[in-house]
Design a protein around this nucleic acid. Structure first.
Lengths: 234, 234
DNA sequence: TCTCAAATTTGATCGATGTCAAAACGCGCT
DNA sequence: AGCGCGTTTTGACATCGATCAAATTTGAGA
């Protein structure tokens, strides 16, 4: 374990907070010591400012990533240049691991949505490692499974629910589960939340004001819920 | 290999066409002989009529499936009982493998959308097998990757494109790739296609008639495209 | 070929959300 | 505490797609 800490310190730029996030990411928590060492040696760390491209659709997929701090937006463009978010990645999330076994080009754009610290994993190295080490293969399978389930949830959510319902779901998913009052703080800008929910920022704003009749109060990034139970009925 | 054929014949009800589909599914093509034998012994075959439930959201996820013939619909319900399709599974497709490493309950309903033949794989047996055999783990990773990519495509498609554009995409994805005229035959009912594209049947019908100005003619299940290149411009 | 139920199309209407513009607000900075 | 910019909200409007109902077509089976 000393070796691991040393190695990570060798990778400069890694704050203790970032290190904690890295070690808690589902991708690494299940690994044995030797797999972990080899994963870390296939990894480098980078810090990027806001609004910086990480990769573009069509680029060669030679790395996948774990967000250590900040948020990353995965999105695609239509012909007229309008953007649609596919996923918002939070600290601890990995993205683009689907390219390990899914084609050689990225299929979407990735861009920072804040100042971001990233762990970057060499795709070929991890691919080789997954062939050798069962725990690495298992980490890949678990990660892919949960992303697939989240994506299917997203499709169903988009197709079944209106804007206020999606917002209510979002709030409920990060509320203590009882039925009483609660408050949460958004982890990022509302425009980013709008994209995550597949809405224009104006539509998110209107959804919040619709939810006022259900006892939801919004001030800046703070959302107060009068009655969590009532919100479930929306 | 004789052993494999014998085993499959032992599983009654497996037509030679179904057997060919089964052996060509990405999940099985990459397997070594011994892994293949063990996969097949974790498998059984079932035939179901149209509109039959395969499993329901919330059921214990103790099997995943490969479609051998017919089509299967994965969908979820909202509170009022409206259905939204998440995925349409064609012959050769596997579904619910994301439950191998993703929770113990199914997250959506699965229903036949035609008379269907299914290969049913015992979840725990395959889970154990994936832990032991690298080629099985790899098959799982490849399958999950491609489903994840398809789901992300679906999200982007829903959020970026109008109904006629989605239909044009669908047609283009199964046209010979040159720029001239082409014809395809839909493999299933239009109402199923509508669900796959996230549309009401009426909206699909109107999308087809919008595409008439772009040289698309629809008669029953046959779709004629005057100019594949022109369709790309939609 | 004929029949009939099921699937699809068409028409009319409505509600939800995107778009553009302008006003209001929140937040970091000094 | 006040300033100023970027974000969010509000308003007006246009568009898309859902819904309901009715007409039409399709295709499987007699």
């Amino acid at each position: 374990m000393e070796a691991i800490t040393d190695m990570m310190n060798g990778n400069l730029k890694l704050s203790s907070r970032d290190r904690a996030v890295l070690m808690k990411t589902p991708f690494l928590t299940g690994l044995s010591g030797s797999s972990l060492v080899r994963m870390l040696s296939a990894m480098s760390v980078a810090s990027l400012p806001n609004r910086k491209s990480i990769f573009r659709e069509g680029d060669n997929a030679d790395a996948f990533y774990c967000v250590l701090s900040g948020y990353v937006r995965l999105y695609r463009l239509n012909r007229e240049g309008r953007e649609a978010d596919i996923r918002i990645c939070a600290p601890g999330d990995t993205f683009a691991e689907c390219q390990l076994y899914g084609g050689t080009k990225y299929r979407y754009h990735a861009q920072t949505a804040e100042a971001v610290t990233l762990a970057k994993f060499d795709m070929q190295a991890v691919r080789d490692l997954a062939e050798q080490e069962k725990d690495v293969a298992k980490a890949v399978m678990m990660s892919l499974s949960s992303h697939l389930q989240a994506s299917m949830d997203c499709i169903a959510n988009d197709r079944l629910h209106t804007a206020p319902q999606r917002v209510a779901n979002y709030i409920l998913n990060r509320c203590p589960v009882d039925g009483g009052p609660a408050a949460i703080r958004l982890p990022f800008q509302k425009s980013l939340l709008a994209g995550q929910l597949g809405l224009a920022p104006e539509a998110l704003s209107r959804a919040f004001s619709t939810l006022r009749k259900t006892g939801v109060t919004v001030r800046g990034r703070v959302i107060q819920v009068g009655d969590v139970g009532a919100l479930r009925e929306i």
